[in-house]
């Protein structure tokens, strides 16, 4: 019974990650518009990318994925490394990208 419960929890966790609305990445080296432009160009090559936010102030790149689609952590790390930047952390949440955008804009006021 305990094993079944563990498996259900594990699958639930996987499912939650697979349908994460937004993926946030803390990125080092993000200092100019050209950096952001290169990262945006790279991330938009993913079929699963719906929209994204880049904040130089927060050193943050956030991607929202299309419904039912996902981009794996390794693919994201590779994409940003190939764009010339260093990913420090990746977080996934159900927060919509618009909320991330508002948070980023609020931090600038």
């Amino acid at each position: 019974m305990k094993k079944i419960t563990q498996r259900v929890c594990f699958l639930a966790l996987l499912a939650a990650n697979a349908h994460a609305a937004t993926i946030e990445m803390d990125v080092n080296g993000l200092v100019c518009a050209f950096c952001a432009q290169g990262i945006e160009k790279k991330l938009r090559t993913f079929e699963a990318t719906d929209d994204l936010v880049v904040s130089l102030e927060r050193r943050l790149v956030a991607v929202s994925t299309k419904p039912g689609q996902d981009i794996g952590d390794e693919a994201l790390r590779t994409a940003l490394t190939d764009a010339g930047y260093t990913v420090k952390a990746i977080r996934r949440s159900d927060e919509p990208l618009s909320a991330v955008r508002e948070r980023v804009q609020a931090s600038r006021k």
Partner: peptide, 9 residues
């Protein structure tokens, strides 16, 4: 200015 801006650029 940088001679390389970004990949595929």
């Amino acid at each position: 200015a940088k001679p390389i801006a970004f990949a595929d650029g």
